[in-house]
């Protein structure tokens, strides 16, 4: 033991570490200022401007926000995005959990199945959009020829306003790999002793699933739900490539409409207003989910 260590805190050492700490964090400090704080403030400014990039911006007060409530396309894209999210995300979670449950039974070849279920999520989104364009093709697409086996008439998936959103949701079900892996980790973390105790008490298999598995993985379900909703609200690339918002605006999602306003109609102010609306919606839903969480999410660390 040297005397150096016994110095209380060693103010010279502490001061040196404080400076090292700030210098190490410098990339984040600069990056936050330049690529988060500045654009955020700029975006707030833009909400109150009318600007087409050519003539100088002009102050329009709350016009852009008022326009949000008048614009029919906002209602449509909000409806589409909600449909896509509130039907799609629960289905994704159910499928991901089902796959995880199957893999959690110690079957042979787990790694192979896990890879098969995971691979579609690895596919670049542009690539999968192009593949699905073909799978959903009304004439020679594989989905219709599969349905024909059951005597179902060919569906005009991406050309029928009623079928386009279900087709998009179906497509997202192939990407549940990451959620499945997270569920699987959760399932493996449930203590075996709970199941054994329940079995001794005579609990049936469905009872054990409902009263042990579901509560024990509820925090994982919650995580998947929150992350899934946030991601789903920002859907863009698939719609941009596959349908360009059609047919009859059936796949006009909020970010696609934002993109159009910003980079096709060059309405920078209005596009920023749409961005903030999306932000408020996402934050609102996240807060609501956290509020509701206390009712159904089982917290570990409560008296055992």
């Amino acid at each position: 033991m040297t005397g150096r260590q016994s110095k209380p805190g060693g103010s010279a050492v502490a001061r040196r570490q404080a400076w090292e700490g700030r210098i190490f964090a410098l990339p984040f400090i600069l990056g936050f200022l330049a690529f988060w704080l500045y654009p955020m403030s700029y975006s707030v400014y833009l909400v109150f401007q009318d600007w087409d990039l050519l003539s100088p911006p002009s102050f329009v007060g709350l016009d852009n926000i008022a326009e949000l409530f008048r614009d029919e396309s906002i209602g449509i894209s909000l409806g589409n995005t909600s449909y896509y999210t509130f039907i799609g995300v629960p289905l994704q979670l159910v499928l991901a959990l089902a796959l995880a449950l199957l893999l959690n039974i110690k079957v042979r070849g787990l790694a192979i199945y896990r890879t098969l279920f995971y691979l579609p999520a690895m596919t670049p989104i542009v690539a999968s959009a192009i593949v699905w364009l073909q799978i959903l093709h009304p004439e020679f697409g594989i989905l219709n020829s599969f349905l024909r086996n059951f005597g179902i008439e060919p569906v005009n998936w991406l050309f029928d306003p009623r079928a386009a959103k279900p087709a998009f949701i179906l497509m997202t079900l192939w990407g549940v790999g990451p959620q499945m892996v997270i569920f699987l980790a959760g399932l493996q973390g449930v203590p075996q002793s709970l199941y054994e105790a329940a079995e001794i008490d005579g609990a049936s298999r469905p009872q054990r699933f409902l009263f042990i598995t579901i509560p024990m993985i509820s925090s994982i379900t919650f995580f998947n739900l929150v992350v899934g909703v946030i991601a789903s609200f920002q859907v863009f690339t698939t719609a941009f490539i596959m349908t360009r918002g059609g047919p009859q605006n059936a796949t006009l999602f909020l970010v696609l409409y934002l993109y159009r306003n910003g980079f096709q109609y060059f309405k920078m102010g209005y596009a920023s207003a749409i961005a903030w609306m999306l932000f408020v919606i996402i934050v609102a839903f996240t807060v609501i989910q956290f509020r509701l969480a206390s009712r159904w999410v089982y917290e570990e660390g409560a008296p055992a």
């Binding site: 500045y38 975006s43 833009l46 946030i230 980079f263 920078m268 996402i282 934050v283």
Partner: peptide, 15 residues
Amino acid sequence: MMLPSVVILIPTFLL
């Protein structure tokens, strides 16, 4: 992490 990057899409483009 919580902030959707879409919010800063337009100003980042302008930057």
